[in-house]
Design a protein around this nucleic acid. Structure first.
Length: 414
DNA sequence: CGTCCACTGGAATCAAGGGTCT
DNA sequence: AGACCCTTGATTCCAGTGGACG
């Protein structure tokens, strides 16, 4: 048989990593290390549902990568397993980052409950009231305790306010047989206090559980545990795991990040044909992750946002700090978008887009007052890295434009 | 100390586009 | 076909404001 064109990959494939899946962020391990306390707390609260008593609502707070989702799902599935006859409780999980409108949340919950494909709720068209009443009926018919998990509730809240949470927490008043408990998960520690209106806060936050960031030692444990299953023996330099853990612990004790770092380091080592993963690979991986994140964000921006971003880069700075204001950017923007054949948006809209990109972390902006000169957002052009520029300028919508034209600060175009 | 700029930030509003229901 | 419904993206309106200038 002739050599496959993938020969070198086939030969290399199993050098270091035995089981890639275990290193993916989506992989749910069968043991959740260092979360015994939180698991126990949730179990204690949720357990009454096995006897058909309604548990308290819970709000879970903790930064990304602290195991909130994994723990809750674990407990949820164990709960259903304990409820062997499937008589008394039902566990439902909704991720509000993906499913982020009131309609789609209700739609999603309903269709997890409705089994008859002919009765499924259409993905649009109904009024919220109708879908809500229908949902309540189905829930009541089941005659069970429902544990509904709303993951990343702050995402939904930001867009829609807390009306759905109000609906969902008041649903019990419409039910005769069943009961609904809500578990809300958020990574914003001020979310509950700052954003939820009092009527929701008292209902939703009957119990509060905090997931602290992992300490470096805990991260090491977690990584070791996964590494044992994922790698062949002796392919990791001793420094690698502590290094990954240290880097991630610096940030926010994010286990997901630590795992990504480990996996990508190994990928790089493998691709390089190296027989062992070292901390040099980790350094390299860290850079790659950062760059990939930026690329990803820029790729998914809307055309208008890309034009605004380009305008920020192209606007000549009028002061010596190298920063630029909203008004200045807007002038450039109007011209640029006309050149590209787009209808310019209003200034208010552009200001929104700027704030948005600030939150995404690709630009740095802060409101600053220039006294009589007014109050505006000061956008730091220097912090917009060359990476951003080169990624952006290779985008389709700028094809054929001479981008050097007015560019004063940037003399080299990649 | 008060004024007053050039916006910000919030909210209400509109239009278009996806649908269902009768 | 016409009445309604939700979502999204944009527009319009408006009160509010930090701090340099006078």
């Amino acid at each position: 048989m002739a050599d496959s064109i993938f020969k070198r990959y086939l030969e290399k494939k199993n050098n270091l990593i035995k089981n890639r899946g275990i290193l993916q962020a989506t992989y749910v391990p069968d043991v959740l290390l260092h979360r015994d306390y939180q698991i126990e707390e949730i179990v204690d609260i949720v357990a009454p549902s096995l006897n058909k008593d309604k548990p308290s609502n819970i709000i879970i707070i903790g930064q990304t990568g602290t195991g909130k989702t994994a723990v809750v799902n674990y407990v949820g599935h164990e709960l259903e397993r304990a409820d062997a006859e499937n008589k008394n409780c039902r566990y439902i999980y909704v991720n509000c980052e993906v499913i982020d409108t009131p309609y789609s949340i209700l739609y999603n919950i309903s269709n997890q409950i409705i089994t008859d494909p002919n009765k499924k709720i259409p993905f649009t068209g109904w009024s919220l009231e109708k879908i809500f009443n229908e949902l309540a009926n189905y829930i009541d018919d089941e005659n069970k305790i429902f544990i509904v998990v709303l993951d990343e509730i702050d995402m939904s809240f930001k867009k829609n306010g807390d009306d759905i949470f109000y609906y969902l927490t008041t649903i019990n008043e419409m039910l005769k047989n069943s009961r609904v408990s809500i578990i809300g998960i958020t990574n914003n520690s001020t979310f509950a206090e700052k954003f939820l209106s009092p009527r929701i806060r008292s209902r939703l936050g009957e119990e509060k559980i905090v997931f602290p960031p992992y300490t470096p030692e805990q991260l090491i444990d977690i990584l070791k545990n996964r590494a044992e299953q994922a790698f062949y023996p002796n392919v990791l330099d001793n420094s690698v795991i502590p290094y990954c853990a240290a880097i991630s612990a610096q940030g926010s004790g994010d286990a997901r990040k630590a795992l990504d770092l480990l996996r990508i380091s190994a990928d790089i080592a493998e691709r390089n044909g190296d027989s062992i993963v070292t901390s040099a690979h980790v350094d390299y991986a860290r850079q790659k992750i950062e760059l990939d994140a930026v690329v990803e964000v820029i790729k998914t921006l809307t055309d208008q946002s890309k034009i605004v971003l380009m305008s920020i880069i192209k606007t000549p700075s009028s002061n010596d700090t190298g920063s630029v204001t909203t008004g200045e950017v807007y002038t450039t923007y109007v011209e640029l978008s006309k050149n590209l054949g787009y209808n310019p948006l209003s200034q208010r809209m552009v200001a929104n887009l700027i704030s948005e990109m600030d939150m995404l972390g690709i630009i740095t902006a802060r409101v600053k007052s220039f006294g009589r000169g007014g109050r505006t957002k000061e956008i730091d052009v220097n912090k917009v890295s060359n990476d951003v520029f080169s990624i952006l300028s290779s985008d389709d919508i700028f094809r054929g434009m001479n981008l050097n034209q007015k560019l004063k600060k940037q003399t080299t175009l990649m």
